[in-house]
Design a binder for these strands. Structure first.
Lengths: 213, 213
DNA sequence: CTCCTTGGATAGCTAAACTATCCAGTATTA
DNA sequence: TAATACTGGATAGTTTAGCTATCCAAGGAG
């Protein structure tokens, strides 16, 4: 175990904790006080740390994702659905959403957008709630938000997704592909957000100047 | 105070907590046991809840942002810098980054990208670290990542930023504009992420089918 | 005049993610 | 072979964030 710790950079007590929590499978016990860990344990630990450190996910979400990745009979589309559901952020719709005019309107906006694009998205997809929450909040706080804008977002997002899928498409083997799709969902999004922040700074520098204008 | 609570939907003890933490200015005291709160307190509360609930930000980050928004002498470009710094996620570079080949290479990749685009971005921008962290993690885990891909991201991100700035550009008054830019940084990004997740589901449905293929 | 409410201060609570201690049983080493 | 160190596992403790709950004295309402 100390060797596993050294190879992965994760402290021994933390590895014990992950074992306890069922995030990491037990090593093969060679005696009452010894167990041997293999390459797959190192990979799994790195995957966990990537999701936690870079993806800022909770261990509960990581556990849900790992279970989906590890179920070989699960179709890839459903596995990705699990990942999306777990990866958060988790929008909280009000309990009595139907009573809330703003929420009803926002749901309608989202439904219109998806229908207009002809996209094949389940009615219960968490991303719908996520988008509705953003729309509600923007409307309530007076930030401009239009269908046109969302359609432009959709075009950009589609282009981005196509690029990511292209890069991962050649991966051989279900297990390998499952792991990469999961990681891609989290890491490519992170990378885009970072690039977007850079673009914002660039535009802000040009628009408002770097001084105290 | 109970009236403020009713108007904003935030429980009285939580308002007291925000007052204690300096997130919300005190109301004007009309006697030892009475204070009156105005429209700006309601606005401020809604802003806090938007950043916390939708932006998933910590109260410490919210405080930093509010302080920047409230400093009228602070140029808008710097104010946005503060927002970006606070809004996270916060990438943790290793302490001895220079010793780490992967990190040096990732930094170089990021620097090349920005230089190639001719963007005006400070050397200490947190988004640089964020992107470098994503690149390091992808390379370590074997996810494909190329300069070409990052340049495509950059083009998409630039288009997105331009759209957002266009929509907010007409805002009158520094205080109003400051608040909107801050909210925009957080909320437009959320909206885009949600749309991107929808695009992913659409593409995944077409690529892998919805069944258990 | 009695009772209720308010603002403010202080203390307590809950959950997540570790971290430390303990222990009995090996493995290592002098 | 005897002493020591280390292992895996179980249990308990720590830290931080973000609230809640309780208490209190002063003031307002009926």
């Amino acid at each position: 175990m100390s060797e596993l710790s050294a190879q992965s950079g994760v402290p021994v007590p933390t590895i014990k904790y992950y074992l306890r929590e069922g995030l990491l499978p037990r090593g093969e016990a060679t005696s009452a006080t010894q167990a041997s860990y293999g390459e797959e344990h190192v990979r799994r630990l790195r995957l966990i740390r990537a999701l936690v450190d870079v993806g800022e996910m909770s261990l509960a979400s990581v556990r849900a994702i790992l279970e989906a990745v590890d179920r070989p009979r699960l179709g890839l589309h459903r596995m990705l659905g699990t990942t999306q559901h777990a990866v958060g952020p988790h929008a909280q719709a009000p309990a009595d959403e139907d009573e809330d005019d703003d929420w009803r309107a926002a749901r309608a906006t989202v439904d219109d957008l998806i229908a207009g694009l002809g996209w094949d998205v389940t009615a219960t997809a968490p991303a719908r709630t996520l988008l509705a929450q953003a729309v509600v909040t923007m409307r309530r706080l007076g930030l401009p938000i239009t269908q046109d804008m969302l359609r432009t977002y959709a075009r950009l997002a589609q282009e981005m997704s196509a690029l990511d899928f292209d890069l991962l498409g050649g991966t051989q083997g279900r297990a390998e592909l499952a792991e990469r799709l999961t990681l891609g969902t989290v890491l490519y999004e992170r990378a885009f957000i970072a690039v977007h922040r850079l673009a914002q700074e660039e535009l802000s520098a040009r628009t408002y100047g770097r001084g105290r204008a």
